[in-house]
Each structure stands twice: as C-alpha cells, then as structure tokens.
Design a protein around this nucleic acid. Structure first.
Lengths: 154, 154
DNA sequence: GTATCTGCAAATTTTTTGCCAGTAG
DNA sequence: CTACTGGCAAAAAATTTGCAGATAC
C-alpha cells in the first residue's frame, strides 16, 4: 500500500515545502487542530487546544504557525484589516474591496441581487439573518504587481 | 425658511435622541468627519483628523463616540469579531454566519452564483479581484431574542 | 439640577518582536 | 553543519475602563 496513513500531514509538508518553510511538530499540531474543528477559533483558542497535545508550545509560536499556514494557503484568517477596526459613515447597502498590499478599502457600488441574498438566508439553517457583509480582496490600481494571475478566491 | 443649513447635524441630533443619547460637539465632529470621507479610517485615523478641529479631544472619546454612532446606526464598524481574529482550516469556497450575541461563527455551505461574482468584479473598477468573503450576521439558534424583527442589513 | 459625557491615565487584550538555544534538512 | 524555528519575555498596538470635573438638556 502506497497510501499514506496520514494524508493530511503529507499535504501540510508539501504545502510548507512549496513555500520554502519547514515541517515542524508545532505547525503540524496547529494544522491538525484547525483541520478537525469547525469552531473558527481565535489564536488563543488554538493555543489552549494545541497545548494539550504539545504542552511546551507557546502562544507566540501559535501566532507564528497560524500566519505560516495562512501564507501557505492552508488556513484563512477571518478578520478585516490587519488589526485595527475601520469605520464607515455610509450605512446604505454597499460593500467593500480591500487591497491586499496596502490595506486600503474602497467602496463598491450596489448590492447583491435579492434572489442571491434569499438563497444565502435559506442556507443559514437555524440562524436569523439580520444583515450581511461582503468584501472583495485583491490589488488596487496602485499596488498591482506586474503580471500576476488572479486566483479564484481568497 | 424652515430648512436647516446643516441637515447632517439635524440627522445626528435626531438619531442620538432616538437612542437616548446626548448631542455633543465631540460626537458631531466624529460624525462630520466620517460623513465627509471615504477612506474608512481606523479609530486612530479619526482621532488624528478630528483633533485638528477639536484639539482637546482624546482617543478614548473617539472610541466612545464611534461606538455611539454605530449604536445609533449612523456608522458601520468594519471588522469581524469583537476583537480577536479567528482562523479557519477550510480553504474551499464557503462563507460564514456570525452571531451578534455570542460571536460564534458557523459555516455556510455553498457559494455565490458565478454571475453574481462576475457582477461584483465588474463594479470594482481599477481593482484586481483575487477573492472575496461574505459574512452573514444575525442570531444563532441559542441567542435568538424572543420575537425581534429581522432588519434588512447590518 | 442632574444624569450623561469627556478627558486623562491606567489597565486589558491582542499581536508582534528580539534573542538564544534547538532542530529540520 | 547551518539556516530556519520555537520558547520566553518584553514590547507594541488596539481597545476599554474608572473616575472627577464639565456639559447638555
């Protein structure tokens, strides 16, 4: 049998190597936890959970590992902006596009179609939807790196 | 003439009073700045800008004013979560619904329709879209307050 | 007049960083 | 071996809070 008993580990190793990063026990533990949960943990949540399996790990390492995984496309960071919240005086239905490079935010005119919103609402079983927010990510005019392709989704 | 020369100010006063809040110079200055800009400033950005007109204002007051405006529906806070970033091990196209009350995040199956995404892309003039993120907000099963209506959008 | 708000400074919370020792390749 | 990592502790950044004096109504 050529099947790897831990295919997840192989995928991690492969993705890390593709990005010039090393495979370590800490990164594996963080990755394993993220892969097995659907609670969308904070960095601290990850730390508390991973610490059970790897008592010596530090919170700083968890932060570093998470950023490494995000950099390799193995995880997604659910937060607008880099750190600080941003405020918008417009309260009418409109959305945003955020530049990956300079974090500038620009307004996007218009809204989703009615049907699209209803379809989303239907999929949110057991959830009473009061609103939604949509944000495109990409490169603004000023930050577009010369000749890079546009992948499907962040 | 019954027309107010500063209709914006009137709207602010009205919204504040509707929420049992007082009209203050600081809140007016923050509101005025937010209404006139499209840069989606951070709290600190607002502070730096408003300080020019109101040299005595403090950053803490700006934070408080911003939250007041958000509470009155006069501004929107662009940030996921309460504070901390959350991480997700799933990187395939899917979206999220976040509970306003307990900040829990649940996955939403499926994606937007192809046409819808293309329409968004078209509206983002001068922006190279590499991805997007959609988040519903509302109340999860456990946090639904007894009999509250569902407004159009957060 | 009085409840609410501001400003200040200190406290909290979240995230990042520097540095030395440890480890993957 | 040697460069990349992890752990620790300290720093930085973002946000919140307590309280006394100021202010809206």
């Amino acid at each position: 049998m050529t099947m790897n008993p831990a295919p997840r580990e192989g995928r991690l190793r492969q993705a890390l190597e593709a990005n010039g990063q090393r495979f370590t026990e800490q990164r594996a533990a963080v990755f394993r936890y993220l892969s097995h949960t659907d609670v969308h943990p904070t960095a601290d949540d990850v730390f508390l959970a991973v610490r059970l399996a790897l008592p010596g790990i530090s919170l700083a390492t968890v932060y570093k590992s998470l950023e490494t995984l995000v950099g390799c496309g193995l995880a997604v960071k659910l937060s607008y902006a880099d750190a600080a919240a941003r405020y918008d005086g417009r309260t009418d239905p409109h959305h945003h596009a955020r530049c990956i490079a300079c974090s500038r935010v620009v307004d996007l005119p218009g809204d989703l179609s009615r049907g699209e919103v209803d379809a989303l609402r239907d999929r949110a079983t057991g959830f009473t939807v009061t609103g939604y927010r949509l944000e495109l990510s990409g490169y603004c005019r000023d930050c577009l790196p010369a000749g890079s392709p546009a992948p499907a989704r962040a």
